[in-house]
Design a binder for these strands. Structure first.
Lengths: 109, 109
DNA sequence: CGAATCCATAGCCACATGGCTAAATATTAA
DNA sequence: TTAATATTTAGCCATGTGGCTATGGATTCG
């Protein structure tokens, strides 16, 4: 019943080389059909489909269905929560902790 | 035989709420004994010990052994590789891709 | 309608993960 | 030397993950 933080999903999604490669591939185009994404990787089509679903659950990617084609695209602010977590902690890491960051971290934001 | 990228380790380590909580706890002090870290969590001691090992493998944490006590501390630049990956992609995400980032990403740096 | 295309889902496998308790190791104290 | 303390390692269990093939649903083409 323990609800999992959105950060868990985001970091987990990024913790796989194939998924990061999919992200890089998507950055080059506005959007891409699932098949075209799958075609650029050695893995089987359903395997890539699964990865896309993980990226979607992490809020990093969206789908647009047009006929029988699914166009995948990056979510503009998708990386922001994970990135801001890192920003704040990069600072704390270096020694200058402040109360705002403490407060934010109590909620694991 | 596929060697796993350091980024995989870092992102994977961050993809768990307990481990992020350990990081937050470590930020408040220069270094802490394993027992004191474990004491602040509901999980059993060996469970926290395992998490510390994951953080260590990810290059986020170091140990210093003094007698029978292990002092854990954050690695100063430990977050940097993961953070810079996100920096670069946050930019690409927003639309302005440049060749340097492309080159860096070919090696998944 | 029937066949082809695009893609997801279902089901399987081997292995990883996060949790636990119990045992081992290393060091210090009695 | 024996006992206590700090921490890791060894096993065990349930569940998750990444990979595959085979099947199914939706859409388009002949």
């Amino acid at each position: 019943m323990d609800s999992i933080s959105p950060l868990d999903h985001a970091f987990h999604a990024l913790g796989n080389g194939t998924r990061r490669a999919i992200i890089r591939f998507l950055e080059k185009e506005e959007e891409l059909p699932a098949g075209e994404i799958a075609g650029h990787f050695a893995s089987a089509v359903p395997t890539i489909s699964k990865h896309l679903k993980v990226l979607q659950a992490a809020g990093l990617v969206t789908v647009r269905k047009e006929g029988r084609i699914r166009y995948y695209a990056l979510v503009p602010g998708g990386l922001a929560p994970a990135r801001s977590w890192m920003e704040r902690h990069q600072k704390l890491w270096s020694g200058n902790l402040d109360r705002l960051a403490d407060y934010l971290d109590e909620q694991d934001i």
